[in-house]
Simulated assay, not measured.
Amino acid sequence: MTIPKAELHLHIEGTLEPELAFALAERNGVTLPYASADELRRAYAFDDLQSFLDLYYALMAVLRTERDFADLADAYLARAAAQGVRHAEIFFDPQAHTARGVPIGTVVEGLARALDGSRERHGVSTRLIMCFLRDESAASAMETFEAARPHLHRIAAVGLDSAEVGHPPVTFREVYDAAAAAGLRRVAHAGEEGPPAYVWEALDVLGVDRIDHGIRSMEDPELVARLARDQVPLTVCPLSNVRLRCVAALDEHPLPAMLDAGLLVTVNSDDPAYFGGYAGDNFDALRDALALDEDTVRRLARNSFRAAFLDGEEHLRARYLAEVDAYVF
C-alpha cells in the first residue's frame, strides 16, 4: 500500500536482502555458509526472537566499510519510498559492528552518506537512532555512547533492542540519563516478548518518548489507560510479531483492540528482509487479515507522522499529514 506513511521502527541491519548479502560478501572476501541467495532466504524461518537474532548477527559479517553501510541504507530507502514511506527513523546497532572491529564512525558516516541525500534521491526525510544491545552490559552501552559523542550531530535518538526477556530497561538508566542530558530523544523495545512491567520501566525509568512494539501492554488495563491518556506512540510491527511467534496469526493481532482502546498505534516493518515485508506490505497484510476500512488505514498513517521526531520541521509534518488526507485509495 502506497498511502504516505512514516516508518518509525526499522533496523537497518534487518534490511539486508540475501542478494545484497552475497554481493557485499564477494566485495569484502567473506564466505557465507550458504550456496546461494535462495538458500539463504530459505534460512529466514524462525522459532522465536533468539533464532532470528542468531542469523541476524552472523550476516553482519559482510558489513565492513562506509560504502557497505551506505549501500545498505540506500537500498532500504529505495524500497521504502516505493511503498509510500515519506519519513524514516532508522535504528542501527553499533555494538554489533564494533565487536567485529568496525569503528563506530565507519557505521555512522556510512549510513549518513545515504541519509544525507535521501530527500533528493528518494523523497524520504530521515532520522538516525542509535540502539544499545540489551543483552550486553550497561557498561558496554555507556562505552558505546561515549564513543558516539563525536557523531551525535548525526543521531536524533537512542533506543534499546535485541533479546528482551531477562534484560529489563531499568538496567540502562544511566546511559539513558546521559542521552537525555545530550538532548537526544529516547525510545525502547518493550512489551514484545517481555512483560508489561518492562513498558512501565521504559516510561518511568528511561523516560522514553515512544515504545517499540508494546503489544503485551494490552495485558495490563492500568498501563493501557496510561498509554491512551498520554498518547505514547507504539511502533507495532505486525509481520514481525507473527514470524517471531509473539502473535499466533495476523488475524489474531491485537492491533484493532489497541486502536479501540485509544492507543497511538503505528505500523512498521522491523526487519523486513527477514520477516516478509516492508512498510507497505505490513499495511496490506493488516488490511487483508483484519478487514481494515479506509478510515482506519488513514488513521494509522496519520499516527505515524504524529509520532515522528520531526522537531523543528513542523512544516514537514503538516505536509505529510496533508498528503495522507489527500490520498485516494
Rank of each mutant, 00 (worst) to 15 (best):
Lys5Arg: 06
His11Tyr: 14
His11Glu: 14
His11Asp: 15
Ile12Thr: 04
Gly14Met: 06
Thr15His: 03
Glu17Ala: 15
Leu20Gln: 12
Arg27Met: 11
Arg27Ile: 13
Gly29Arg: 10
Leu32Thr: 14
Pro33Lys: 15
Ala35Leu: 05
Ser36Met: 10
Glu39Arg: 04
Glu39Met: 01
Glu39Ser: 06
Leu40Tyr: 07
Asp48Ala: 05
Leu49Arg: 00
Gln50Val: 11
Phe52Asn: 03
Leu55Ser: 08
Leu59His: 11
Leu63Cys: 11
Leu63Tyr: 04
Ala70Ile: 12
Leu72Phe: 10
Leu72Gly: 07
Ala75Asn: 14
Ala81His: 12
Ala82Tyr: 04
Gly84Glu: 08
His87Ile: 06
Phe92His: 07
Pro94Ser: 10
Pro94Thr: 11
His97Lys: 08
Arg100Leu: 06
Ile104Asp: 08
Thr106Asp: 01
Leu115Ile: 07
Leu115Arg: 02
Glu120Met: 00
Val124Gln: 00
Arg127Gly: 11
Leu128Lys: 12
Asp135Asn: 02
Ala139Ile: 01
Thr144Ala: 07
Thr144Gly: 04
Thr144Ser: 11
Glu146His: 14
Glu146Leu: 15
Ala148Asn: 08
His153Tyr: 01
Val158Asp: 02
Gly159Ser: 15
Asp161Ser: 14
Ser162Phe: 09
Ala163Ser: 13
Pro168Tyr: 07
Pro169Glu: 00
Glu174Ile: 09
Val175Ala: 11
Asp177Cys: 02
Asp177Asn: 04
Ala178Phe: 13
Ala178Gly: 10
Ala180Trp: 12
Leu184Trp: 05
Arg186Tyr: 02
Ala188Gly: 04
His189Ser: 11
Ala190Phe: 09
Gly194Met: 05
Pro195Val: 10
Ala202Trp: 01
Leu203Glu: 02
Leu203Met: 03
Val208Trp: 00
Arg216Val: 00
Ser217Pro: 00
Glu222Gln: 13
Leu227Ala: 06
Ala228Gly: 00
Val232Ser: 03
Pro233His: 06
Val236Asn: 00
Asn241Glu: 05
Cys246Trp: 01
Val247Phe: 05
Leu250Glu: 03
Glu252Asp: 12
Glu252Ala: 11
Leu255Ala: 10
Leu255His: 08
Gly262Gln: 11
Ala273Asp: 06
Ala273Asn: 03
Asn282Cys: 10
Asn282Gln: 08
Asp284Gly: 03
Leu290Phe: 13
Leu292Tyr: 06
Asp293Arg: 05
Asp293Lys: 08
Thr296Tyr: 12
Arg298Lys: 10
Arg306Ile: 10
Leu310Thr: 13
Asp311Gly: 13
Asp311Ala: 13
Glu314Thr: 04
Leu316Arg: 13
Leu316Tyr: 05
Leu316Val: 05
Ala322Phe: 03
Val324Glu: 00
Val324His: 01
Val324Arg: 00
Ala326Val: 01
Tyr327Asp: 04
Phe329Gln: 00
